[in-house]
Amino acid sequence: MKVSLFITCLSDAIFPRVGEAMVRLLARYGVSLEFPPIQTCCGQPAFNSGYWNEARTTAKTIIEAFEDSDFVIAPSGSCAGMVHHYPKLFEHDPAMLDRALALQSKTYEFTQFLVNVLGVTDVGATFRHKVTYHPSCHGSRLMGIKDEPMALMTHVKGLEFVPLPHAEDCCGFGGTFAVKMSDISGAMVSEKSDHVKETEAEVLVGLDMACLMNIAGNLRYRNEPVKVMHLAELLYEGVQ
Rank of each mutant, 00 (worst) to 15 (best):
1 M>R: 14
2 K>G: 08
4 S>G: 09
4 S>W: 05
6 F>Y: 14
9 C>F: 05
11 S>I: 03
19 G>F: 00
25 L>Y: 04
26 L>H: 05
26 L>M: 08
27 A>E: 11
28 R>V: 04
28 R>G: 09
28 R>N: 11
31 V>T: 05
33 L>V: 08
36 P>Q: 00
39 Q>L: 01
44 Q>M: 03
47 F>I: 03
49 S>D: 01
52 W>A: 06
54 E>M: 03
54 E>Y: 02
58 T>P: 01
60 K>I: 04
63 I>Y: 08
65 A>M: 06
68 D>C: 10
68 D>N: 15
68 D>E: 14
70 D>P: 06
71 F>E: 10
79 C>T: 13
83 V>M: 14
86 Y>L: 10
95 A>K: 14
100 A>G: 12
102 A>R: 15
103 L>P: 02
105 S>H: 14
107 T>G: 08
109 E>F: 01
109 E>D: 12
110 F>V: 12
111 T>M: 12
112 Q>K: 14
113 F>G: 02
114 L>E: 04
114 L>P: 07
116 N>T: 13
122 D>V: 02
123 V>E: 09
124 G>L: 10
132 T>W: 00
132 T>D: 10
133 Y>D: 04
133 Y>I: 07
137 C>W: 03
138 H>Q: 11
139 G>S: 13
139 G>V: 04
140 S>P: 10
141 R>F: 03
147 D>C: 00
148 E>K: 00
148 E>I: 00
150 M>L: 13
154 T>W: 05
155 H>Q: 01
164 L>T: 03
166 H>R: 08
167 A>R: 01
168 E>R: 06
170 C>T: 09
173 F>L: 07
174 G>E: 05
174 G>C: 09
177 F>L: 08
178 A>V: 07
178 A>G: 07
179 V>A: 06
179 V>S: 04
183 D>V: 12
183 D>Y: 08
196 V>D: 06
197 K>D: 06
198 E>C: 11
198 E>Y: 08
201 A>S: 12
206 G>N: 01
211 C>W: 01
215 I>M: 03
216 A>Y: 00
217 G>L: 09
218 N>T: 11
219 L>I: 11
220 R>N: 15
224 E>S: 15
224 E>D: 15
225 P>Q: 15
225 P>N: 15
226 V>G: 15
232 A>H: 00
232 A>N: 04
234 L>Q: 02
237 E>D: 15
238 G>Q: 13
